[in-house]
């Protein structure tokens, strides 16, 4: 599995370099919470990107002819999501702290616990949804679905705003202790991640190339 991770990183060195510049640029020029955006983007774009590079080079056949099980290939992608997230977060924290200290960051803010937790939640949710689609359909055919998923949060916000009662109905959540709520949400998300992994393995094992 480690070899697959090394392979994915090796074929994306240019993208990683771009991300490095993008992170610095975002801190200097954008008035957004970079600590959330960079880890999410690196997790999603690098995972999807590695699949895209495989497809562009027609290398999937090559990888599938290596002494590997298909399930290992799938699980390594799920693991790489976490590694890219961690790498993105580390990058954001390092550059963020430095640029805020120097005083050239647009938003003078250090990373918070909530930034890490929220971005991790969003990453897990996205990856759980798009990875099975990619493993079922391949990169080219799944691009539309991945794009639709990027639009999902704004669509969800619109739908929720149409139902003001919904937020009232969820008020009880504020009475649940914060730690317990976090634990519950994470448990739920990791369950989804596990289910997603299960379906991805099944889809990929059945696919013909």
């Amino acid at each position: 599995m480690l070899n697959l991770l090394i392979k994915d990183i090796s074929i994306q060195l240019k993208t990683i370099l771009f991300f490095l510049c993008f992170t610095i640029g975002s801190f200097i020029f954008l008035e957004v919470n970079v600590y959330m955006i960079i880890p999410i983007l690196s997790a999603i774009l690098l995972t999807v990107g590695s699949v895209g590079i495989e497809e562009k080079n027609n290398s999937e056949k090559l990888v599938l002819s290596l002494p590997l099980k298909r399930s290992t290939i799938v699980l390594s992608k799920y693991m790489s999501v976490m590694i890219y997230f961690g790498g993105g977060m580390l990058l954001a924290v390092l550059f963020g702290s430095l640029l805020v200290k120097i005083g050239i960051a647009r938003v003078l803010k250090y990373v918070s616990f909530d930034d890490v937790i929220l971005s991790l939640m969003i990453t897990i949710l996205y990856a759980s949804l798009y990875l099975p689609i990619i493993f079922k359909l391949g990169y080219k055919q799944s691009r539309l679905y991945v794009f639709m998923m990027v639009m999902l949060p704004s669509m969800a916000t619109l739908i929720i705003s149409d139902y003001p009662d919904l937020t009232k109905k969820l008020v009880w959540l504020s009475y649940v202790p914060h730690k317990m709520l976090m634990f519950g949400v994470f448990l739920f998300l990791f369950m989804i991640y596990g289910i997603s992994m299960f379906f991805s393995v099944r889809f990929y094992e059945k696919r013909d190339f």
Binding site: I11, K14, I53, N57, K61, L62
Partner: peptide, 8 residues
């Protein structure tokens, strides 16, 4: 046909 990474 070639299945190696073209840019490497």
């Amino acid at each position: 046909e070639n299945h190696f990474y073209e840019d490497l």
